[in-house]
Computed example of a mutant assay.
Amino acid sequence: MGVREVVFNQRERLTRLERLACKWGASRAATVATANIVVNDAFAELCRLPDCTVYGLSAGCPPHVGGTFEMRKLLTQYEWAIALKIDVPTDILLGEERFHLYRVLHEIVAAVEQAAVEKGFSRARAFAGGSCKRIFCADQPDCSVLYGGPCRHPDRARPSMSGYGIDVSRLMNAAGWQMSWITRNTSAEEVPMGALVGMVLVG
């Protein structure tokens, strides 16, 4: 197989992963060069107390993940990532319903990760927004992994992008999407839609 055929084959596999992400619930999906993914130490710092009330409560969040150092190292080992988003009305993003959608986001990136492995991207790794403790194990006293046990949801829960300092705004720009910043003070009338974002490093 020549170089041109190899490149075409890889592009086709990446396109299929984008389509699968949308089939499984993503509003949009796009292949992004990892060279365009930006890591910001300040974003990872927001995962600490008192800014984040679930700091330290799960294996997928700081301080139990490699943070910005590990992510910068990882990005040098991959050429591509599948970025995906779920468009969500702002009033839902600011309410308790958002946790259900975070669960959907984790399930989509985990499924894309598995599909990528099956398509030959054996080192695929998925990341999503939100704490897996709050999303999947809110009714549990602790994260079992932190006490030497197995993850209760290994096929669905994935590490938090925030804990690795991923600049979501820059990631969305690299994917060709616009981002609207949503905070507790955002008016749903002024900014009607936001998004939840995840990514899968693929090759």
Rank of each mutant, 00 (worst) to 15 (best):
R28E: 14
Y102G: 09
E190H: 10
E189K: 14
G67T: 06
F8L: 08
T183D: 13
V65W: 02
W24E: 14
D167E: 11
T76R: 11
F127M: 09
S144K: 07
A174G: 08
L49A: 15
D51Y: 14
A124F: 07
V65A: 05
R48V: 05
G198Y: 07
N185C: 09
T90Y: 10
S131L: 03
S58E: 12
S162E: 15
R16F: 05
C52F: 10
E45I: 04
L74E: 10
V6F: 06
S187R: 08
D139Y: 10
R158W: 04
P63N: 08
Q178S: 13
F43N: 08
E79I: 00
A35W: 06
A35Y: 05
L46G: 09
L17A: 05
A59Q: 10
E118K: 13
A111I: 01
G60R: 02
G56L: 04
Q114S: 11
V117A: 10
F8Q: 11
F8E: 12
R28P: 00
S169W: 11
V117K: 15
V7H: 04
R170F: 09
E79L: 02
Q114P: 00
A30E: 12
C151R: 00
L93Y: 07
F69C: 03
A175K: 03
A174H: 07
R72M: 00
M199P: 01
I82P: 03
G120L: 03
E113K: 08
H64P: 01
K85E: 13
V200H: 07
F69A: 14
F121M: 03
G66P: 01
M161T: 15
A115N: 06
E70G: 00
S144I: 01
G67L: 03
H100W: 13
L146K: 09
G66C: 04
I182W: 05
G129S: 11
C132M: 08
A124G: 11
R4F: 12
G129H: 05
E45Y: 12
E45P: 07
S187K: 07
K85G: 10
T53H: 15
V32D: 08
V145E: 10
